[in-house]
Amino acid sequence: MSSIVSPPSDWCRAPAGHERIWLGLALGWCLVLSLMMPFWHFKGKQNSRGEAYAVKPDAFLARAEKFIAANKVGEEKQGPNVIPIVEPPPGGDAYLVARMWSWNPIIKLRLGQTYRLHLSSIDLQHGFSLQPLNMNFQVLPGYDHVLTLTPTSKGIFPIVCNEFCGIGHQMMVGRIVVE
């Protein structure tokens, strides 16, 4: 029967032959796909739990400024702006403010230490994209998105914005330095 005419009345039949084997294989593969995620959640080291807290943009900015004042180790001139360089205590909290079109501050981390990195925006949505590792997380205004992060390689890691945030979007580049 063609697919553009009504089928004969006895069309409801169990699959057989190759089709039946393929159905079994496909279903089995789908089970593998679904079990991989809970497996990695418990056994893997990279997960996105979405840990977040409600925060008003100005409150987040105030927390970040307090964090910068307490842990500042230097600063860097970028055009008209001066961006502070901040080294949070190992095992402690770090704050990163996203705004059109900068990441503030530059954060220095120690290899092998674990930090709680707080991400939020004070204007539009932004995308935290750590290069060249290519780790990506969403940054929203009103949400303090907490990543528990352990750097395992040294170097300079640019933070690119990968959520469109206006005409200067492509200029929004920050930095994490691991020593």
């Binding site: 789908c30 089970l31 796909l33 679904s34 995620m37 809970p38 959640h41 997960n47 996105s48 739990r49 979405g50 840990e51 977040a52 991400l119 990506n136 997380f137 969403q138 929203l140 949400y143 303090d144 998105h145």
Partner: peptide, 22 residues
Amino acid sequence: LLVDPAVGASWKIWNTSYAMYL
């Protein structure tokens, strides 16, 4: 929404797999 804040791991896993990838 897989790397979004405020939606948890179990929500993400169940919904992304379209209930076992059906």
